[in-house]
């Protein structure tokens, strides 16, 4: 990924120098090497903080909402999976397409630091990438780890190296090497359980929720000016889950609001501090939509109507749809 970072820096420098854009959105170095954060770069001096390595999982498309309000031109570097989210934001009119210069950058799959730690590595000081492996340098010695084993969950369901939307691209497309993965596998497994087991699973999973709203605020499809849960006028506003019913309520509504608009970018379960598998809820809706109304990938383009905003005269009947899967 090293030479891609170099190409990005040069591209950003040219754009800023030529004044083609007023700011560039990319990733900037953090304290450690793995906590890269999204960053705005307004002038060329700041560019040396720009970084692009195996820890740039953050989806930058949501930051464009703020910029396109101030009718300035912004350049953004997007991985293939982030471009779907940008299409969705354009379709929801939260981002003005003409004020964004989209530069597609290849991605070989991002690494999940927790999975690295789960391999018994502590006090990590540095990680260098070479080919399909990572050498991890820790206070307790260095270790070799295969990249495919420590990929983020969302990269396992990678939607391929094609860009859904891009003005320009940098570098050659890279494939994400990972074991074959059916993103609906866990959903199907849950569906096969009895209602009692499913309820117990979700009650356990959702009880960990501390209502910190990270899942809602990172989600590019959740882009309302004022969310239903923050609006004191709405009867559902609430700051904490008093019991299991309210936990489920918050998550059903959050998942329902993005149903048909969720591009399955996996950011919600990546950022959840409690590690709740929120993507399973979204994937359940995606699986249902595909099954009932034909395959639909949100953000594949910026104009087809979302499934819940359109209908077909001979749609399946509500009761029948869930027959057979008790």
């Amino acid at each position: 990924m090293q030479k891609i970072e170099q190409l990005i820096k040069e591209k950003a420098r040219d754009l800023l120098a030529a004044g083609q854009v007023t700011s560039v959105i990319a990733w900037q170095k953090g304290e450690m090497f793995y906590d890269n954060a999204p960053g705005y770069f307004d002038n060329t001096e700041e560019l040396d903080a720009l970084v692009y390595n195996a820890f740039c999982a953050a989806n930058l498309s949501k930051y464009l909402i703020a910029n396109t309000k101030k009718d300035e031109k912004t350049a953004v570097f997007l991985k293939p999976c982030d471009t779907y989210s940008l299409n969705q934001l354009i379709k929801d009119r939260r981002v003005q397409r003409e004020q964004v210069l989209v530069i597609g950058i290849p991605c070989a799959g991002m690494v999940d630091i927790n999975k690295v730690k789960a391999q018994g590595l502590k006090g990590i000081i540095g990680i260098t990438e070479d080919g399909d492996n990572l050498t991890v340098e820790t206070a307790y010695g260095t270790k070799q780890v295969a990249r495919a084993e420590v990929l983020l969950n969302k990269c396992l369901a990678c939607k391929g190296s094609a860009y859904a939307v891009s003005d320009e691209t940098i570098g050659e497309p890279m494939a994400v090497k990972h074991a074959p993965y059916d993103r609906f596998a866990v959903v199907k497994e849950l569906e096969s359980l009895s209602p009692q087991e499913r309820f117990a699973f979700w009650q356990e999973e959702l009880s960990k929720c501390i209502r910190c709203n990270a899942c809602r605020d990172i989600c590019p499809a959740c882009s309302c000016e004022q969310c239903l849960f923050d609006n004191p006028e709405s009867p559902l506003a609430g700051k904490a889950n008093n019991n299991s019913a309210e936990e489920q309520l918050f998550h059903i509504i959050r998942a329902y609001h993005v149903a048909g608009r969720c591009t399955d970018c996996g950011e919600c379960s990546r950022v959840c501090p409690q590690g709740i598998r929120l993507d399973l809820l979204n994937r359940k809706f995606i699986k249902d939509i595909n099954e009932f109304y034909g395959d639909y990938q949100a953000g594949a383009d910026a104009d087809t109507n979302a499934p819940l905003l359109s209908f077909d005269v001979d749609d399946v009947e509500p009761g029948a749809a869930t027959k057979g899967r008790e």
Binding site: D92, R93, R94, S223, C224, E225, Q226, A306, L309, S310
Partner: peptide
């Protein structure tokens, strides 16, 4: 107007 985010999902239905 205070809470409308202009996504126009309403217009489509």
């Amino acid at each position: 107007e205070q809470t409308c985010s202009g996504c126009l999902a309403c217009e489509k239905v």
